[in-house]
Design a protein around this nucleic acid. Structure first.
Length: 875
RNA sequence: GGGCGAGUAGCUCAGUGGGAGAGCAUCCGGCUUACAUCCGGAAGGCCAGAGGUUCGAUCCCUCUCUCGCCCA
């Protein structure tokens, strides 16, 4: 006998072990089945499973499992991302604990350490995906630094370069002093901070001052001019004169520039072409020198004169102090402004001119825009397309070089004179160089690595073996859907579309499902520092992974955030237990069912036809909603059906036949129970794979449920007559129960039920007498049209049926009367509204005939109900 | 400054151009032999506010308010 309480800690590891042993997710591109592919958003090797992963991967697994069961060659390509900065940071922190730095180790040794770290911990996240139940084809697992994928990266780089889409040059980039690298625009987060605006007097040659305002006084060390708006009467006459940079004494020409906003600060702008994009433009126009005053670590370099070596903020303080001492600081006012921060380490970034590699984005962006516009790619929810368009339309070139050690080394080799040779490998570079110089020369490879996202952009095809022409690419590209959260829409999704179109000539995926962002129940972002993280693995321990998956699926919405709390998992756990117990019940009651017994051809009871009809409705609903990515609606339909129709009603009704003395009826009931359980288990499998697989095994089925067929739609099972009949029955039971409860009949009392009116109640009682007695706790049921209820007896109305319960002094007559009155009031109010609507000629004229007919039927039913209730009101 | 999302029962949220639902919490009653992670019953809402379109609006349109996010 199975335990009465489902224990996922027993079941889940066993199922997992079986999956591990049988490798059931391996796909076969030659199967001839229609392909259905998903590439996983590769988690970082530093990652630990959090709820965001859980959500995204649960959705993908639901889709893959559904399609696999539904006859597709469903292939889910897994893998991990080397995550340049993130991983380097993690390993550097670990080194710091040993008192080491990467500089002390040297590049080669450091890289060796990161690989060692990757071997040790990088597999953890993959193990966690397995624990989650992800049915990826693990034989196809890839890592972005694998030799094959590295080759893809170099191939893409070389091609883009030869096509003129990659270039190298000196441009203003964002520099993170802590990470010691350039960043792309989108790796910088702008945050409002409370700072200061410093008003500084710059002396003029020949006497006087020009006041300038700045939020970053330390950048004055790189000033090479002062600019004013030529239409600004205050300063117009100063154009052409020269100011003297305080503290350093550098001579600064005063120039005119339209960009200067006379209303901001003093109206005069100090020009620092090395550290401000606007200043750089102005500097270029006037041929001003560019002075970079920052070392890679954020300290002031040799151009800072006496301030060299000071950390940037210390330098700021020191400069302010000196300016004050010299009487050149006019004033300091509080000033709130947006400042860029490194997405990875939250350090304030500095704009800085630097030599970097860039991808020219405009030519890549246009086809990517078109692909969504013409529907080759569809966003779900659709509104994300707008965000995607807005970004691509305003796109700027992408800085792809990073001054890191962990990543794909840039495939550029430099000759002695700095000439760059871009090649797939050193041998090719050597050949190119020899051709260029006419002799062998020593070459030096670029020290930098590529932005992690460069390799990620190639993922949908590099994971399938590109640039080789593989069978996987031929069969599985383009993939069906990409599932991800919106935070990497620009970082990843848009770039995959661009690269996919460019290199494969075809979109990488047909649909993009943007999942909500998980926050805690108060709407706060979950983070370790806030202490509001929900650990997926802890939840697995306490509730089971199926429960977590079910909760995830059930709370998926179209909003942009998803407030998640353990209460939802409690609910899912309860459902899990309900399902388990239903299975126990069915199994225990069908042990004697012969193997070959079939339902086809057997006479069905009304409740059989009802539950099979309802089941059919659920099959249709679940399929429809899964196709639309409405996991919550599929989940809800399964929950409601299983719990509140199958368990609450059908199982209760089934007990009568199972315990009855008609062997044929018993057999039919057993077969319907099996059919219902099997179908529910199949339907639920993509959402709750462990529990359903376990039940499947107990049902004695051959093979894995994961490979069984998904239930198909069989409209011939729809039976509106049976549904209406059962609805009548259930309504009567509910009403008798309600009357009993409200009127104070002791719960255990077995009463007599007398039905006094209602079309076809004889037939109803004929079939359901036993059921009525059992479900409404009755001693007997009698049909007696027109019989007057004894004074003070309990009574009620269920649809078109009127009834009473002769219980003598067991009931509280005023309570009976109050309940009937309450019902009557409600009925009257509803009737009034409907009659008002029907009384409106425009309604009859303009509303659809079905709506009018429905309203009329409703009114008729309410009138009947009103009459019956009024009659029941007599003492 | 521009854009997006959310505002529905005490809480967390579904939902649809034809009159509002779930789970939890609450209250009442039950150990009814699958399940107390359960069973039965009840109560609870001018669907943020104001206009408009419509025979009819929680749903579509406009404006306002509150909260959150993205981009500049």
């Amino acid at each position: 006998m199975l335990p009465p309480r489902y224990d996922p800690r027993d079941v889940e590891p066993r199922i997992l072990a079986r999956w591990e042993k049988d490798q059931p997710w391996r796909c076969n591109p030659q199967s001839g089945k229609p392909p259905y592919a998903i590439v996983i958003p590769p988690p970082n090797i530093t990652g630990r499973l959090h709820l965001g992963h859980n959500l995204v991967n649960t959705f993908q697994d639901i889709l893959i499992r559904y399609k696999r069961m539904d006859g597709y060659e469903a292939c889910w390509f897994p893998g991990t991302d080397h995550a340049g900065i993130a991983t380097q940071n993690v390993v550097e922190r670990a080194l710091a604990k040993e008192g080491l730095t990467r500089q002390a180790l040297g590049r080669e040794e450091f890289e060796r350490r990161v690989w060692a770290w990757k071997e040790r911990y990088g597999g953890e996240i993959v193990e966690q995906l397995k624990v989650l139940g992800c049915s990826c084809d693990w034989s196809r697992q890839r890592f972005t630094l694998d030799p094959g994928l590295s080759r893809a990266v170099r191939t893409a780089f070389v091609r883009l370069h030869r096509e003129g889409l990659i270039y190298r040059g000196d441009y203003m980039i964002h520099w993170c002093p802590r990470c010691g690298t350039a960043l792309s625009d989108i790796e910088v987060e702008h945050r409002e901070i409370d700072g200061h605006l410093f008003y500084v007097r710059y002396p003029l040659e020949g006497g006087g001052f020009i006041p300038v305002a700045t939020t970053r006084p330390e950048t004055m060390l790189g000033d090479t001019a002062v600019a004013v708006n030529p239409r600004d009467e205050r300063y117009r006459d100063l154009i052409g004169r020269t100011a003297v940079l305080p503290l350093l004494g550098r001579r600064l020409p005063i120039v005119g520039a339209e960009e200067v906003d006379p209303a901001f600060g003093t109206g005069a702008l100090k020009i620092t072409p090395g550290h401000d994009p606007v200043d750089r433009e102005i500097g270029k126009r006037y041929g001003l020198p560019t002075v970079d005053v920052l070392n890679p670590d954020g300290t002031i370099n040799e151009h800072g004169g006496p301030f060299a070596g000071l950390e940037r903020f210390a330098a700021r303080e020191e400069i302010v102090r000196r300016l004050t001492a010299e009487g050149l600081l006019e004033k300091v006012v509080p000033y709130r402004h947006a400042v860029g921060h490194c997405q990875r380490c939250e350090t304030r970034v500095e704009p800085k001119v630097s030599t970097q590699w860039f991808v020219r984005m405009r030519p890549l962006a246009e086809p990517a825009i078109a692909a969504v516009q013409d529907g080759r790619i569809r966003f779900v929810p659709e509104r994300w397309a707008k965000v995607y368009f807005d970004w691509l339309e305003g796109i700027r070139d992408w800085c792809i070089s990073r001054q890191l050690w962990w990543g794909h080394r840039i495939p550029a080799w430099y000759g002695p004179d700095g000439e760059a040779f871009i090649a797939h490998d050193e041998a090719e570079a050597r050949a190119l160089a020899k051709n260029h110089y006419g002799r062998e020369v020593p070459l030096r490879q670029d020290e930098d690595v590529l932005d992690t996202w460069f390799s990620s952009a190639l993922w949908p095809f590099s994971v399938m073996g590109w640039p080789e022409r593989t069978e996987d690419l031929a069969v599985f590209y383009p993939t069906a859907v990409l599932v991800t959260a919106f935070d990497i829409l620009f970082f990843w999704v848009a770039r995959m579309v661009m690269m996919g179109l460019h290199f494969m000539g075809e979109v990488p995926f047909r649909e993009v499902l943007i999942t909500p962002f998980i926050v805690d129940e108060r709407g706060q972002k979950m983070s370790r520092s806030k202490g509001n993280m929900i650990d997926a693995l802890e939840v697995k321990e306490s509730h089971g992974m199926d429960a977590l998956r079910f909760a995830m699926a059930g709370s998926s919405t179209k909003g942009r955030e998803l407030r998640f709390s353990l209460r939802q998992v409690d609910e899912a756990r309860n459902f899990q237990n309900k399902l388990w117990n239903m299975a126990r019940f069915v199994l225990a009651n069908t042990e004697d069912l012969p193997a070959g017994a079939a339902l086809a051809g057997r006479p069905l009871a009304p409740e059989d036809r009802w539950i099979l009809s309802r089941l059919e409705g659920v099959v249709e609903k679940v399929r429809t909603e899964l196709e639309r990515y409405n996991f919550h609606l599929a989940t809800e339909a399964l929950y409601q059906f299983t719990w509140h129709e199958l368990c609450d009603w059908y199982l209760e009704l089934a007990k009568l036949r199972l315990q009855g003395d008609d062997p044929e009826a018993r057999r039919t009931c057993q077969l319907v129970l099996r059919e219902a359980l099997e179908t529910v288990v199949r339907l639920l499998h993509p959402i709750m794979p462990f529990l359903t697989e376990e039940i499947w095994a107990h049902l004695g089925k051959e093979g894995l449920l994961a490979h069984a067929a998904y239930p198909t739609v069989r409209p011939e099972r729809r039976d509106p007559v049976a549904e209406a009949e059962l609805e009548r029955f259930m309504e009567l039971v509910r009403e008798v129960r309600a009357v009993r409860a409200e009127v104070g009949v002791p719960a255990a009392a077995e009463l007599e039920l007398v039905l006094t009116s209602g079309a076809g109640i004889e037939a109803l009682v004929g079939h359901f007498e036993l059921a009525l007695r059992r479900l409404a706790r009755l001693r007997s049921v009698r049909v007696s049209p027109g019989e007057r209820p004894p004074a003070g007896s309990a009574r009620g109305v269920a649809g078109e049926i009127a009834f009473f319960l002769p219980v003598g002094d067991l009931v509280d007559w005023p309570a009976v009367r109050d309940k009937i009155r309450k019902d009557l009031e409600k009925t009257k109010a509803e009737l009034e509204k409907i009659e008002a609507r029907l009384g409106n000629p425009e309604f009859r004229e303009k509303a659809s005939p079905e709506v009018v007919a429905r309203a009329e039927a409703e009114a008729e039913a309410l009138r009947g109900r009103r009459a019956r209730l009024e009659r029941q009101l007599a003492p």
